[in-house]
Structures are given as structure tokens and as C-alpha cells.
């Protein structure tokens, strides 16, 4: 069922360099992109630590719990200062700060607070592919944002994304439906997460984040979905009998022609009779 055309994209990883450089590529046109706001979702993937999220010094998401997805925030293109604090703490005591993060117009971005491979809290931006899906299709995106080694992601026991490491992502457009997915250490069948039933809805991008820490046994999955990517079917073929063709039956054409001929004959006789 899973016919995967596997495409893997390395995430923009460095924490300090939170510039969404490639984001504009997904916008429909440069002119529209410049005007449209960016849609920014915030994903909390750091176990055990609720936070307040500040955007440009303003508390935007108070008491943000681990495992949750906030947004999307509709932000005009520009540069933003982002800070995460313990709930109630002053912004000066932030756990994590990123200054001058560039947000291009028209992009759809997920900003993920998660652990680096060695267990330190980081913020990683991912650009979401919001291209339209063919009718019947769903998009599955998997993002490795956990303090864990390289992994394979399997569906129905078969590896579909292989050798994914923090903070990489992999993506495939597949038939909509439910898949049973799990995560194993790369090249092994040692399960680190799952199995979990993923309902891949048609016309929707389902984004699965592996979060937490392998050492602390806090590995978990967080999912985000982006709907409205559907297309209409190619057509609605609903008849091949021809009985509903309401064109006049061929016999009626014959009747019409015979009528005209008879009329002409009668007319000529009439004219002849008058002579």
C-alpha cells in the first residue's frame, strides 16, 4: 500500500542561525509571498518542561505544555525575537532565546522546541510543504527531533524512511488511510517508539515529530496536521449505456424527411393542377 517516493530534506539545523532561508520556495508567487503573512506553528517537544513563549518581548503562548502544538500564528514577514521561559519567569531568565529569526511572507513554518541529539534544548524551524495533493492522497512527514541516535521509520513493519538523524525530516505523498507506524534504531529491529496508528487523512499533511530523550526514556510522538491540501477528482464518469441521450431517435429524422418530401410532392401537384 505504501508506494513511497522517498524524499529526504535536511533540516536547517543550527540553533543560532534560525533564518528560514528556503521558505519562500513554497510560496505560490514572489509578489503574493511578499504581501501574505506567514503561518507559524509552534511545537513543544521538550518533555517535562512547560514554558511561556515570547514573540518580540510579548508573551504569546503562556503555559505551553509539552506534546502540544500551538498556532498557526499569522505573522507578517519580518524578523522576530523568540524566547522560551519557565512559566512566570522573567524574559531575562529565558531557557532559550533566538534573536532576529527571519520569517518570509507566505511561508508555512513549524518552529519546534526540542532536544538536540545530546539532550540540550534547541529551537528548529521546519518549512512545511503545503503543495496541493492529488485526490485520494495524503502527505506524511516525519521529523527526528529527539535526543536519540539515527532511526528508521517503519509502516506495517517495513522501513519507509531510513537513517533519519536529529534534526532531519523525510516526506512522502501516499494513499490516504491508516498506517501502523513505529520507529526503530537505524538498520535494526530494536523498537524505540510505537507502534502507533496514524490516520493519514486525505488532502492533509500529517507531520510526526519524534521527541524526548532515549537516555531518559521519555521518547514520544507529537503530531501536527495541515488540512486543506486536497484536490478534486479528475472527473465523474457515470454512464456508458447511452440510453439517457435525449437526442431525437434516428427514426424521427426519417419521419421528418418523408414529411418534407411528401409536402414538396403535394405542392408540385398542386401547381401542376392549377396550370
Amino acid at each position: 500500500m505504501l508506494v513511497m517516493s522517498l524524499r529526504r530534506t535536511a533540516a536547517v539545523g543550527a540553533v543560532a542561525l534560525i533564518a528560514f532561508g528556503t521558505a519562500g520556495a513554497f510560496a505560490s508567487s514572489p509578489a503574493a509571498a511578499a504581501k501574505a503573512n506567514a503561518q507559524v506553528s509552534v511545537v513543544h517537544g521538550i518533555p517535562g518542561q512547560p514554558v511561556d513563549v515570547y514573540v518580540n518581548g510579548k508573551k504569546t503562548i503562556p503555559g505551553f505544555q509539552p506534546g502540544k502544538v500551538a498556532g498557526p500564528l499569522s505573522l507578517p514577514a519580518g524578523e522576530y525575537d523568540i524566547a522560551l521561559t519557565k512559566p512566570g519567569d522573567a524574559i531575562g531568565d529565558a531557557l532559550l532565546t533566538v534573536d532576529d529569526a527571519k520569517v518570509p511572507g507566505g511561508a508555512n513554518i513549524s518552529l519546534v522546541a526540542h532536544l538536540s541529539v545530546d539532550g540540550k534544548p534547541v529551537l528548529t524551524p521546519f518549512v512545511n510543504d503545503t503543495a496541493k495533493l492529488a485526490a485520494g492522497q495524503a502527505r506524511l512527514v516525519v521529523r527526528h527531533t529527539a535526543a536519540a541516535p539515527e532511526v528508521d521509520v517503519r509502516a506495517g513493519g517495513k522501513p519507509v524512511f531510513e537513517g533519519l538523524s536529529n534534526p532531519e525530516q523525510a516526506k512522502a505523498d501516499i494513499d490516504a488511510g491508516t498506517v501502523s507506524a513505529d520507529v526503530v534504531l537505524a538498520g535494526t529491529s530494536t523498537r524505540v517508539l510505537g507502534p502507533a496508528d496514524l490516520n493519514l487523512k486525505e488532502g492533509t499533511a500529517t507531520i510526526v515529530y519524534a521527541v524526548g530523550s532515549a537516555d531518559d526514556k521519555t521518547l514520544d510522538l507529537v503530531t501536527q496536521s495541515i488540512s486543506g491540501l486536497h484536490s478534486a477528482p479528475g472527473g465523474v464518469p457515470s454512464g456508458n449505456g447511452g440510453q439517457a441521450d435525449r437526442g431525437p431517435a434516428p427514426a424521427w429524422y426519417g419521419v421528418g424527411i418523408a414529411g418534407v418530401l411528401l409536402g414538396l410532392l403535394g405542392l408540385s401537384r398542386l401547381v401542376a393542377a392549377r396550370r
Partner: peptide, 22 residues
């Protein structure tokens, strides 16, 4: 000339029927 008229009438009738069917 009545027979010619009859032909004419029949022709008109058939033509009209075909038209109505169409």
C-alpha cells in the same frame, strides 16, 4: 387538386411530429 392537398397536409403533419419530437 384535393389529392395534392392531402399529400401536402400529410407532409406537414409528419414534419411537425418530427419537430415536436426533436
Amino acid at each position: 387538386p384535393g389529392r395534392a392537398l392531402l399529400l401536402l397536409l400529410l407532409g406537414a403533419l409528419l414534419t411537425t411530429s418530427a419537430g415536436v419530437a426533436a
